[in-house]
Design a protein around this nucleic acid. Structure first.
Length: 316
DNA sequence: CACTTGACCTGTCCGC
DNA sequence: TGCGGACAGGTCAAGT
């Protein structure tokens, strides 16, 4: 979508969100053309014709919104109001599905595409108070980086140095690549044999991309309790967990892509995630497999959802 | 080294 | 109604 576009100007208002030296920005970002957009683990890589790369991490509340053509102020105000009514139902989503949605805004001249954590900024007028960085392109289109909590960042560095970033060096394999076999997974997770299986799969050095939602979902699917110590699990359980991780991630991408275009509709605002989540944020509701009531607890310092029947807690 | 906990932020929700 | 505190969660630094 932004490939081929040339950056004209940049606005940023927060050094944490945009930790870049002004000279580098002037020299290697302004006037640069986007040559390619890639992703590695939870990092988005926007490669530029200057041999520099813009790294973007959304962390928990970041989002990217691409806007073409003029903003229709009146229409956006209406959408904001409607959106607020639905806010109670809205859910955060795993940040790096990077689901790209074509927002249907009838009678509007505006074209928007959003990716990341859904919130009002996707439909409200931009920039808003969560906007940290705005990239303006020479064709008058814009890319907004919004991030309520300022955990995410937009970092410029020479393309050749991306692979030397500490995180890029240590991050594990991509779960949806063919190289991610059960052998690779079991070998890598056993490096964390003394810790809980949930902590192990959340560890980005074991594999890339599993966050709190996918961790709970895949462990439920594999019928493994999140607090189970890795070393206590049978090989067959780890093999099945590997399969479930892949399935959950594939399913989330599929679901996100299929329903998210109705995003701004009242129904769509719920987020497609709820349609496939079996345990996440379903505490108090019946397990889809056995009917037992889903419980919420804390494992690995995270809110954790389990079925007390399907996922037997380990003896302490 | 393996592992756990707290910090980073800001908005929301819950209980008093 | 206001207010303090818990919570949300990806990653890293500091601690055990």
């Amino acid at each position: 979508m932004i490939t081929g576009k040339t950056i004209s100007t940049i606005n940023h208002n927060n050094d944490k969100s945009f930790p870049n030296n002004q000279d580098s920005v002037d020299q290697f970002m302004i006037g640069a053309k986007v040559t390619q957009v890639k992703r590695r683990a939870k990092v988005l890589l926007i490669e530029l014709s200057t041999n520099y790369t813009i790294m973007v991490h959304l962390k928990m509340t970041g989002q990217l919104v691409f806007v073409a053509e003029a903003t229709n102020q009146t229409r956006n105000t209406k959408l904001e109001i409607r959106n607020k009514l639905e806010r109670q139902k809205s859910l955060n989503e795993e940040s790096f599905e990077f689901r790209v949605s074509n927002l249907e805004i009838p009678k509007s001249e505006e074209l928007r595409f959003g990716a990341g954590h859904p919130n009002d900024s996707l439909v409200g007028s931009l920039p808003d108070r969560s906007t940290r960085v705005t990239l303006h392109f020479t064709d008058e289109t814009k890319l907004y980086f919004n991030d309520q909590r300022r955990f995410g960042w937009v970092k410029l560095l020479p393309t050749g140095l991306v692979q030397d970033e500490p995180f890029m060096k240590k991050v594990g394999p991509e779960p949806l690549e063919p190289e991610f076999t059960s052998d690779v997974f079991t070998t890598r997770i056993k490096r964390r044999k003394g810790t809980s299986v949930k902590a192990a799969i959340l560890d980005q050095t074991v594999l890339a991309g599993v966050g709190n939602i996918y961790a709970d979902e895949s462990l439920w699917a594999a019928k493994i309790h999140p607090a189970s110590i890795v070393g206590s699990l049978k090989n067959a359980q780890l093999v099945q967990l590997q399969r479930e991780i892949v399935d959950v991630m594939n399913l989330s991408i599929e679901k996100g892509g299929s329903t998210n275009k109705n995003y701004v509709d009242a129904e769509g605002k719920r987020g497609s995630y709820m349609e496939f989540a079996n345990v996440f944020r379903r505490e108090g509701q019946p397990c889809n497999r056995c009917g037992s009531i889903i419980e919420k607890s804390r494992v690995a310092g995270r809110g954790t959802h389990t079925c007390p029947s399907c996922q037997v807690a380990p003896a302490i």
